[in-house]
Design a protein around this nucleic acid. Structure first.
Length: 260
DNA sequence: AAACATCACAACCGCGAACTT
DNA sequence: GAAGTTCGCGGTTGTGATGTT
């Protein structure tokens, strides 16, 4: 008792280990339960986030590859302004990457590039600027990115979705299409930025290069456990949905444990 | 070498959806 | 079917690392 103060902030290695063990015991669904029984003074929410964004086997760490960057651009062009859950959607197409990671990436990199463009445009628009002003040529971006994915085949389970009750949530297109967040001190929305940079940063190249084989896994940073050996190579991404859910639900004994 | 700016990433929060009772 | 609980997502913030002046 006495320890009813919920911990916040960075996770320690010990906490990671503890969480990892309990997730393997009980599965990655009952977060509140795990948070309680593990003795971690964390919220279930916090545990889930840590698992999904950091401890999950198969996470790919390190910088985005150019192919991944392109894919993010393409997919955001396709979904970014239309759907909620856009980041998780995009993440599903980038094996080993989490929505959080993509979101962070997009926010930092794309904002930077948008600002660069704005700056460049401002320079260009000065009377003295000349021919080079085709700079980012939003005009030549009328070429839509050809998505590497067929329209119908978009819905895949997220890589960290271990196969719980995933209702095939039809995409709710309601609202949230206009996130007016203040970006830096510029005061324009992410969507605005997006429109700005859409198609101007990367060549409209189909991301042929992005194959799952190209994924380069490095295991979780601080935990090296045989438990996730099965995920440390690219085979994970070659699984079909069924295999995938099997693979990610080896924890039925968790349920068994609970139900007797 | 120090100060400042920017980047990269982990983590938190609020809210709505989904699930359970 | 309603109420309560839990989960998942998107947006945002905090902070250490790295680069620049």
């Amino acid at each position: 008792m006495i320890q009813d103060e919920t911990r916040k902030g960075p996770w320690t290695e010990q906490e990671d280990i503890l969480l990892n063990n309990f997730v393997h015991l009980f599965g990655d669904r009952r977060w509140d339960f795990i948070a309680k029984v593990s003795g971690l003074n964390r919220t279930g929410k916090s545990c889930r986030l840590r698992w999904v964004n950091y401890l999950h086997p198969g996470l790919k760490r390190g910088k985005m590859t150019p192919q991944e960057e392109k894919l993010v651009v393409e997919l955001h062009a396709k979904w970014g302004n239309r759907y909620d859950k856009r980041w998780s959607r995009i993440a599903r197409k980038l094996p080993g990457r989490t929505d959080n990671e993509i979101k962070n990436y997009w926010r930092t990199h794309m904002r930077k590039k948008a600002q660069e463009r704005k700056r460049a445009a401002a320079t260009m628009s000065s009377p003295s600027s000349s021919s080079s002003s085709n700079h980012s040529s939003s005009s030549n971006t009328t070429t839509m990115y050809s998505s590497p994915f067929p329209e119908g085949g978009e819905e895949q389970p997220s890589f960290y979705d271990t196969g719980g009750n995933h209702v095939a949530a039809a995409v709710a297109t309601t609202g949230k299409t206009n996130d007016l967040m203040q970006v830096g001190d510029k005061g324009y929305s992410m969507d605005d930025i997006w429109k700005d940079i859409e198609g101007t940063i990367f060549e409209p190249v189909v991301s042929e290069g992005l194959t799952q084989e190209g994924c380069n896994f490095s295991g979780p940073p601080s935990l090296v456990s045989p438990d996730w050996d099965y995920c440390t190579n690219d085979t994970l991404w070659k699984l079909d949905d069924e295999e995938e859910s099997k693979m990610f639900l080896p924890y039925d004994y968790g349920t068994a444990f609970l139900t007797g």
